[in-house]
Nucleic acid binder design. Structure first.
Length: 509
RNA sequence: GAUUCCGUAGCUCAGCUGGUAGAGCAAUACACUUUUAAUGUAUGGGUCCUGGGUUCGAGUCCCAGCGGGAUCACCA
């Protein structure tokens, strides 16, 4: 490995520290009694509280004034200025702790511990006056130094998306707003978990390695178990396992699930992503719509303190109740064409009239889906429920109680994208078998995303599953909206990337 | 997968019709005991993504590849 000039210098400093008997990576704990924000927000009203503080953080910048210096330390929640005076940290005649160790051997990026008191500088900045300073971890690589001027403009920002995603740790260190998005994401799942727990539903874990993949239409990742000598798939959904638990007698179960789909990548798609799925016995999809509204409204309030949230060009308002359209109403509303009573031929003609490409393999359901995707979805900016989907597209949803050819299903669309998908679950085992068989036929005709027939799941249904409402929410998509992020990569700590260099991969193999 | 833009110092970038590379920050050295994009002076630092080609000469032009972004397609 070739070292750069600055890396060589830092390693030399490390040696010099060792020579002076200073451990660059000490083992003992360093007590921290206040965070940066606690000091910054608390000092004005209660200065006495901070007369003896112990703090730790990463050096983000240094302003060296000769025999005194200012530096900025960053901890997990913010940044605070420290003031280091030579005669304070060197009590005796020996001034090397300041002149050599602090000024020469410490760098931007190093993690240090300081003790002292909080005070206000001449210019009014709340700062730590350091009495004692200790190196806690030496940094061997130079940190990009991002500067902020008096007007709040950022200079030399660390922006290269490739480096930001590959070296997320670095992104998190130097770009505080990046951290904010991830904190919000965690608040989101936490808010959701509290909501579901408060309703009495049980958080469960189900297999990620599955012998049959089911519960969605997608291509899976395939792997192999050596001892069992069998093919296993990474789950594309956990629906069929959660329903087995409803059969088993649980009233409400949910799981935050990493799912895996072996498909294209885009700013909305990562090969592994997170969904929460929820199943509640004795409920239907109407009930579930109310739950989704209530839950998402609460999330908005928990994250932002209000229901209106800026997303790109728009302000999205999650306040209940949300608009509700049936699929047919939505299409009629945005295209002016009522397709309710159209047969397949009439529908094909109507779709072509809208400029939608139709081919012979498409059934009625697929055509409706195309029309919706092309002509309606992008217009739905404010949260909107679309209900009553064609049965062909929904092999796990229950037939509509009054509308032939449709199922009791809804999606919530927001900012032109689906954020959840739910139905009254199909619990008729005879019907479910038929639907699986139709999927098998699709598979034989070459549909790589057709569902597999899961005999054990059917056996479970044959024992009897109560009427059940089921829901899946894309956590990544919802996080994007709640954090106003343009790309899924901004809400995933480590988005999938190609290997950095070919040589690296070859060496590893 | 398609289109398009990009890849130059640790970071952010400039580099014209081709003439063997430049700034700011960071680094090094010196000065400065309340600064805040601290300041002043001096210095060092480059496989110009990789490999070919054209040319007397390529960071620049051409071809191929690698990596990334955006848009589209795919993905309910």
């Amino acid at each position: 490995m070739e070292l750069t000039e600055q890396e060589i210098i830092r390693r030399q400093k490390l040696e010099e520290l060792q020579k002076q008997g200073i451990e660059a990576y000490p083992a003992d704990l360093w007590e921290v009694n206040f965070s940066s924000t606690e000091m910054l927000s608390g000092f004005d009203t209660n200065p006495d509280k901070f007369s003896n503080i112990s703090f730790a953080g990463r050096i983000m910048s240094v302003r060296d004034m000769g025999k005194a210096a200012f530096a900025v330390l960053q901890d997990a929640v913010g940044r605070i200025q420290i003031y280091v005076r030579r005669d304070d940290i060197c009590q005796g005649e020996d001034k090397s702790a300041y002149d050599t160790v602090f000024k020469k051997l410490l760098d931007i990026g190093d993690i240090i511990g300081v003790k002292g008191f909080v005070f206000k500088t001449k210019t009014g900045e709340t700062s730590i006056h350091v009495k004692e300073l200790k190196l806690l971890s030496k940094s061997l690589r130079p940190l990009p130094v991002v500067k902020q001027d008096a007007d709040g403009n950022t200079h030399d920002a660390f922006t290269d998306p490739e480096m930001r995603y590959r070296q997320r740790y670095l992104d998190l260190i130097v770009n505080p707003q990046v951290k904010d998005a991830f904190v919000k994401r965690t608040q989101l799942t936490s808010s959701m978990r509290h909501f579901l727990n408060a309703k009495g539903y049980m958080e469960v874990e189900t297999p990620i390695l599955q012998p049959l993949y089911g519960g969605a239409a997608a291509r899976p990742f395939k792997t192999h178990h050596n001892t069992l000598d069998m093919t296993l798939y990474l789950r594309i959904a956990n629906e069929l396992y959660l329903k087995r638990l409803i059969v088993g007698g649980f009233d409400g179960v949910y799981e935050f699930a990493k799912d895996f789909r072996n498909e294209g990548m885009s700013r909305f798609h990562n090969p592994e992503f997170t969904q929460v799925e929820l199943y509640v016995a004795y409920k239907d999809y109407e009930w579930m719509m109310n739950l989704v509204e209530e839950m998402v409204e609460k999330i908005a309030l928990d994250l932002h303190g209000k229901t209106e949230i800026p997303v790109g060009e728009h302000i999205i308002n999650f306040k209940r109740p949300w608009k509700r359209f049936t699929m047919y109403e939505a299409i009629a509303h945005y295209t002016g064409v009522d397709i309710t009573t159209m047969d397949e031929d009439a529908l094909a003609t109507a779709a072509r009239g809208m400029g939608i490409h139709i081919d012979k393999t498409m059934g009625r359901g697929k055509m409706i889906d195309e029309i919706f995707g092309e002509k309606v979805e992008a217009h739905l900016i404010q949260p909107t429920f679309i209900t009553d989907y064609p049965v062909e597209m929904s092999p796990l949803a229950k037939k509509h109680r009054s509308k032939p050819g449709l199922v009791e299903r809804f999606e919530a669309i927001c900012n032109g994208k689906e954020i959840c998908n739910a139905f009254s679950e199909l619990n008729d085992p005879i019907d479910q078998r038929k639907r699986f068989e139709e999927q098998l036929e699709l598979g034989i005709r070459g549909d790589e995303e057709a569902m597999q027939l899961d005999e054990d799941f059917l056996r479970a249904l044959e024992f009897g599953m109560p009427p059940t409402a089921g829901l899946g929410i894309g956590i990544d998509r919802l996080s994007m909206i709640m954090t106003n992020s343009h790309s899924i990569q901004d809400v995933l700590f480590f988005p999938q990337m190609r290997p950095e260099k070919k040589e690296v991969q070859e060496e590893a193999n």
